[in-house]
């Protein structure tokens, strides 16, 4: 069955006809054509499809599009300013090595956004809790946690890597 819904998508009011059986992920990717939100598993186990609905992070693969009616939806595309300036969280991920293959990154960043909106001073434990539902196979999460920490009001730790011996010293030309 079709129905008309109205919602706010990344700050813009939208009216559109949807099908009852569409997931929010389908609406975003296939109908609206915004592919930043990823499908990693389709069953709420990986978090790649995370979006923010009325301030809460949800898995859009398990959320019916019909339920977005009257609500506010934010996807990864809504984070950076229209002029392209990155959101501080995005900037932190870029600068701290929080991104490798990048497939989990939009969902990861959105989860961080939902967390910091609610708790701007989240500590490491709270950060890990907030992104526990966002699986990443590349980074081992360390630099992701560092990225979020760097913008959470809690200072990021010093980088762990220190060169502790150089044998031939000056090389390179």
């Amino acid at each position: 069955m079709s129905r008309e819904i109205a919602f706010v998508f990344n700050g813009n009011k939208m009216n559109m006809a949807i099908e009852d059986h569409w997931t929010l992920l389908h609406l975003i990717r296939e109908e609206l054509g915004y592919t930043g939100t990823k499908e990693g598993c389709g069953s709420g186990e990986c978090g790649a499809c995370t979006v923010i609905v009325d301030g809460n992070a949800v898995n859009s693969c398990l959320y019916l599009a019909a339920e977005i009616d009257g609500k506010e939806l934010m996807t990864i595309e809504g984070l950076a300013s229209p002029d392209g300036t990155l959101h501080p969280i995005q900037k932190a991920f870029v600068e701290n090595g929080g991104i490798q293959c990048g497939f989990c990154s939009p969902g990861m960043i959105i989860s961080a956004k939902a967390l910091l909106d609610e708790n701007p001073n989240a500590n490491e434990e709270e950060i890990k809790e907030a992104i526990a539902g966002n699986l990443c196979r590349c980074t081992g999460y360390v630099q992701i946690v560092d990225s979020i920490k760097s913008v959470s009001g809690h200072e990021a730790q010093e980088p762990h890597v220190v060169a502790f011996r150089s044998e031939e010293g000056d090389r390179g030309d």
Partner: peptide, 9 residues
């Protein structure tokens, strides 16, 4: 239970 995303819903 699950993740924050799941518990929100």
């Amino acid at each position: 239970i699950g993740s924050v995303q799941i518990r929100n819903v």
